[in-house]
Amino acid sequence: MNSERRDGPRATGSIVGTVSVPHLIGRLMRPLPLFPIQPILGRIVREVACKRPELFERLGPHVRSAFVIDVNELPFVLLLKPDPAAPGLSALRRGPSVRGDATIRGPFMDLFRVVDGRGDSDALFFSRDINIGGDTEAAVCLRNALDDLDGSIVEDIAAMGGPLFAPLRMVVSRLRALEERT
């Protein structure tokens, strides 16, 4: 008995018709320069690294690898360097100059679910919603490191204080609400 799967409803973060929150954010950010985002990203990665040192243990030999996180809807990619001595997360325009040891690409909501500990990355990989390239072992180690966290990094980010994070908290809250409804 072999049977094709029956897909259930998938959360895309849709708010009206075909427009989604991630698409909306992506469109709004497209004309903007990237430099205002960099300090926010820098603070996120530093605080997460400080609060979650166990992440580095599971990364093992890939703790100093560079990961390109390519979110389909955003007008830039993220470059993550989890190096415990100098953790880095920065936004870069897409292009051949962006190089990392491993690349993880997918829709915003799917990557959001995985980072939030609510998405099954293997199922998303099997369905081709998430794609990985480059050093597969590095990508697998990052997945396993994120998966072993109590709570989620999204919660950590949402809990960060300061005026820069107020709109981010609102977006996270909205995305989680959308996800839970679907």
Partner: peptide, 23 residues
């Protein structure tokens, strides 16, 4: 257990040899 089909490898499921050797 209909929801479990979404988590299967390759999107396919089977009862394997438990149901028949000709699976």
């Amino acid at each position: 257990l209909s929801t479990l089909a979404m988590l299967t490898e390759g999107g396919k499921q089977t009862q394997g040899a438990y149901a028949t050797k000709k699976w």
